[in-house]
């Protein structure tokens, strides 16, 4: 091998040396688990529908049940094993959001219930809420600007 002269050259050499993630296997697992979680959600939705629950409440029930299952599996120390197998398959559904709230809550328990559990709960999921909520507010404001007939300033 020739001596490495620059940082760029070293980075290229390192990229070449570093093994790639098994992307096909990861994608297959992600598809399988992600699809499974969504279809479980759909089954819950269908059950709600047959019992005469309206659509938006049904979607909320689906979210809450999946969040509960994710929190439960996290507290049993199982969710991280699923996550290791499934990657984005368990991260992208709402189960991943729930896990990202439950796992720091458990982790920082040793720092107490207020500044540990309470404050650190959002270390991972906080950005999701910040960007999701901010975007939704912007969407609402833009909607007002472009639909002036609906403008009912309080």
């Amino acid at each position: 091998m020739k001596p490495i002269q620059s940082k760029e050259e070293y980075q290229a050499y390192v990229d070449d040396k570093t093994p790639n993630s098994p992307i096909l296997k990861n994608c297959f697992n992600a598809f399988l688990v992600g699809g499974l979680i969504c279809s479980i959600g759909q089954i819950i939705f269908e059950i709600c529908k047959t019992r005469g629950v309206d659509e938006s409440t049904s979607y909320t029930i689906v979210s809450m049940i999946l969040v509960f299952c994710s929190a439960f599996l996290t507290s049993l120390n199982i969710f991280n094993k699923i996550g290791k197998f499934a990657g984005a398959g368990s991260l992208i559904p709402i189960t991943g959001f729930a896990n990202s709230i439950v796992s720091p809550a458990m982790e920082y328990k040793s720092e107490g219930y207020v500044m540990g559990v309470g404050a650190k709960m959002f270390t991972v999921a906080g950005p999701v809420l910040v960007y999701g909520i901010s975007t939704s507010i912007l969407v609402g404001i833009i909607y007002i600007i472009f639909n002036t007939q609906s403008l009912i300033l309080v």
Partner: peptide
């Protein structure tokens, strides 16, 4: 639901990897 949900996860997995 399976196929669309799974596909959204595949996109994220490709982004991660």
């Amino acid at each position: 639901a399976f196929i669309v949900g799974g596909a959204l996860c595949i996109i994220a997995q490709i982004l991660i990897d």
